[in-house]
Amino acid sequence: MDQINIFIDKIYNFLKSLTLAVVLLSLIAFFSAIGTIASNVKFLKDLGLDNVYYSKWFLLLIVLFVINLVLCTLSMIPSTKALFSPKAPNKIFKSKRKDTKTHLINLLKSKKLYIQQKDDLIAAYRYPVRKFAVYGIHLGIFIVAFGALVGSIWGFRGIMEIPQNEASNIVVTRNNYLSLPFSVYNKNFTVSFYHNKDIPSEYKTTGYIIDSTQKIPFSTTVNHPFIHKGIWFYQASYQLNPHDSFIILNVNNSRVQLYLHKPVSIDNAQFYLANLSYYNSKPIALLYVELPQGSASGWIKLGDSANLGPINIVFEQAKESYITILSVAKDPGSNIVIVGFIIMIASSMLIFFKFRRRVYKVEQI
């Protein structure tokens, strides 16, 4: 029985130790930072660290930290309680007055001190709330950790891929997918480029939320999300829709409509549109052409022409249709986390107040 009690005490002392708190805090901070950048780093993404906030082992770290915090806080209560239980006096107050105790109490209260009485002892405290700052900080950390748990258990993060003029309610997460109780309709997606460059300067999705009989308009660009029913939608990226994106070529005075990744044969030649992009603010197409005498490939700009033996090609028109890619996230614990941080900051401010304690023993002479 004694060995069991010793073993339990060792576990209890380990769980409430400052060493464990530092280790857990360091691990949580490290993996939180990794989780923030993992989606942009391939080898971290391959390890599954882009979904770290919703992993079971990350939840375990938070649970262990909460247990450590609670036990650490509970172990501090006896010393705090003793501090506010007057015992050994450190000052003697002598007076000839019959109402010596009442006189001392009134004197201390006039200095705006907090007073406690026990028998012939009177304790006076200046800024006693200072001693509860650590409890407030612990409470704030506990609320932040609880909010993180709520977000990890009941929240999610994923993407939606919605072609133009279509609606979807499917969010694809790392290992699964889920259906939203409403749909997002992509009415229009536009992308603009820097002048004389093929680098996009902005891409924007406009549309509306289809929720029951309601149609709620929205517009989103990078770093400008919209929110519906606690779910955040961010403009993440885009890609060409191969089913609706095409170019029109004039091949020996015959017009050919060529879709992405769909080869077309004309005049003993096969044409294949591999890519459609922009250069100097103009559409450019990556073409592959198979001829009886050989093959050719290369980029051609809108309005340009090329001769391939007996075949003359003119790039007359381009129509791009895009699939917008939205990053979708729900974190029901975010407001809880904010409350926790507010409590932590407010409690930290109490540290600037200087705590003083005097215990008087009253003697009538």
Rank of each mutant, 00 (worst) to 15 (best):
Q270R: 15
T213A: 13
P292S: 07
N252C: 01
F315C: 03
V256S: 00
Q239R: 15
I231W: 03
I313Y: 00
A274S: 14
A269I: 03
S212M: 11
I216Y: 10
N280W: 06
Y238Q: 04
L287C: 01
K262E: 10
S321E: 05
G298V: 04
I248S: 09
S297H: 14
K229V: 02
S254G: 04
N250E: 12
G294L: 06
D244Q: 05
Y234V: 02
Y288P: 01
I231Q: 02
P217I: 06
Y278Q: 15
T221I: 12
L273V: 01
G207R: 04
V289L: 07
I284E: 09
K282G: 02
P263A: 10
V264A: 04
K215F: 12
Q270W: 07
I227Q: 14
T213I: 14
Y208W: 07
N252K: 00
S295P: 01
I284M: 11
L273P: 00
L286T: 04
N275A: 08
A269S: 12
G294H: 08
S281A: 05
F315H: 05
T206F: 10
P283E: 00
S265M: 10
A306V: 11
N253V: 05
N223T: 10
Y288G: 01
E290G: 01
N312R: 12
S295Q: 13
I227K: 15
A285S: 15
Y234W: 08
A285F: 11
I231Y: 03
R255W: 11
